[in-house]
Design a protein around this nucleic acid. Structure first.
Lengths: 329, 329
DNA sequence: ATCAAAAATGTAATCGATTACATCATAAGC
DNA sequence: GCTTATGATGTAATCGATTACATTTTTGAT
């Protein structure tokens, strides 16, 4: 691969002139520009990002931290991030942390080392202290998942309110025995959704039954199945279930089916996220939809703003309850 | 962020010595090493990859090209790639091309610019000519998807044989009217799977009915639904369906259900890939399982080998037919 | 104590770009 | 034709690391 010196030599000009052509600086004669462009083509030259970044300290690369690419929830958000980034002449790289601190470190280092200009973190299991430390010197945005005390700007929805809406929907349908399949409450969103759940119940004077609240350690289907299995063993079976993710809800659905019960006739189910598979289940799943694409766009805009030295404010977007077969009795 | 000069100054040594400490060169007195390490800690110094790569021309970063992170098929492969890479002291970056040539270019440039050492391509829609050109000067491996004429090493399964096994399974169950939901046959795997389908039919003297072969433009659920809808309208309805991806098969399942038909009683269904959803459907889906994790490991090993200057050979791995409810009449 | 060999450390070139500043060429004004 | 203003191009420092080679220090044998 040719370098700028060789191009300069071939074109019979200095490296400065080649650089000027490369960066579209005004003061280059058309004739010279042509010579340089010819040399570039002949040598098949492409400028090295390494040299450029070293000098400019910018890479125009954004890092997106996700806990696992297997969770379909992130897909649409990433589309939004990607589109916005490209519109602003930035590119993104996906970093699957697998919630593994070692891998996390690798990606943090890319930023420290100026190989990337900033980070959008969507990993709820991220090492918060490290993220906060990093945020002191580097642009970082939290997307969907966040730490309220961290001072790192975030974009998210009102999880408490969304859960409240979902549960209220079930109550309005006449349900009084509503179970909650929650994930690990070390995550803020899990605590918030539980609060929404409890607020709805309280508001309608329904008791909060510990037996109907189940916390899973992960979000995969099997954990939803396991949760539902346990709930079906309780003294008084719930007549409805609110799960904090579609994957859990789908696992629950499967478990209900395999017990010979019908959704929504015997038990109604509400999920969260509106992943694409949620309309493929039988019955289709009622779920809380987040404006994922917009959330991604917003996060990217915020990050780019922040990179360009502007102060950015956290943003809370609206959610929407999508009513489908699993609650249509 | 401190640089190596500042560390050297603080420790009262030269930059060369700092660099030696950083790179564990033998010839440093324990006393000096200590001084340097102290300075490094006090200044919170981390070496810049930019400077290092510029000098060394290696980044120890691998690029993984995927058409879309929304396809769950890639998840496990990526796990394999990631584990193997990390074991060899490499890191990976996921590149979602969205089958968009512009984005592809960005990632190709990262390699050309030495910001990454090599590429594992899993995008069937990749611009082959560009990939081949790139492969002349840079290590590249094709994973799962490949071009047989490209000379770029690949790891894959025998798609023809896998499809043959799937269809033979249906034939053995007594089916004689077997439909094929294929994707776009501009993809090699689609052509190969069709061949396997046809070989199985021919071997048992079953006619190949054009009406029972449907090509979709994409792999999302809806395209499977659409395909099945069309198949159900044919003069003679098929009694079994082989879809070249689980997502298509799940769409087909949904469509069959919504026509009031039962799987497998009325129509049997076989998918391909064994994505996690495939065990959450009702009924669960019979599918062809690829050794995805191993495929990922293999691809990563091949790439790293290639980076280190060794010649690598293409590899074909074994598949397995997983029989579940959708074909258990 | 002296000197050679070995070990430790320093000096400075290098990677590939960008850019402030210097220099050279051209055109305009008189 | 001479001076000056302006535009085009070149020179060389710079970014942050690595490393061949040079230099200094230490060690050990006599």
């Amino acid at each position: 691969m040719a370098n700028i010196q060789q191009v300069a030599q071939k074109a019979g000009v200095s490296v400065a002139t080649v650089s000027r052509v490369l960066n579209n600086h005004a003061t280059v004669t058309p004739k010279t520009r042509l010579k340089v462009e010819q040399a570039i083509n002949e040598l098949n030259y492409e400028p090295s990002m390494l040299g450029r970044n070293l000098r400019n300290s910018e890479s125009r690369l954004l890092l997106v931290l996700i806990p696992s690419i297997s969770n379909p929830f992130y897909t649409e958000i990433i589309d939004g991030i990607e589109d916005t980034a490209i519109k602003n002449n930035y590119n993104i790289l996906l970093c699957d942390t697998d919630s593994n601190p070692q891998r996390e470190n690798i990606y943090f280092n890319l930023v420290k080392n100026k190989l990337a200009d900033g980070i959008i973190s969507m990993d709820p299991a991220v090492d918060m202290q490290k993220l906060i430390d990093l945020a002191e010197h580097h642009p970082i945005i939290q997307c969907s998942e966040y730490d309220e005390n961290s001072c790192i700007p975030y974009v998210t929805i009102d999880n408490e309110l969304a859960a409240y809406h979902a549960v209220k929907h079930l109550i309005k349908l006449g349900h009084e025995k509503i179970a909650l399949i929650n994930s690990d409450e070390k995550f803020l969103y899990a605590r918030q959704r539980r609060q929404g759940y409890e607020r709805a119940l309280s508001e309608f004077n329904l008791p909060i039954n510990k037996e109907w609240i189940y916390n899973t350690t992960q979000l995969e289907f099997e954990f939803g199945q396991q949760a539902m299995k346990k709930l079906l063993q309780s003294d008084e079976k719930p007549s409805a279930v609110f799960a904090v993710s579609d994957t859990l809800a789908i696992g629950a659905l499967k478990e209900i089916n395999s017990h010979g019960l019908l959704v929504p006739d015997d038990i109604s189910v509400v999920g969260f996220d509106k992943i694409s598979f949620s309309s493929m289940t039988n019955p289709t799943l009622t779920t809380v939809s987040q404006p994922m694409y917009r959330m991604g766009c917003t996060a990217a805009s915020m990050l780019i703003d922040s990179i360009q030295g502007n102060k950015v404010e956290s943003i809370v977007l609206n959610h929407e309850l999508v009513i489908r077969e699993s609650t249509m009795g």
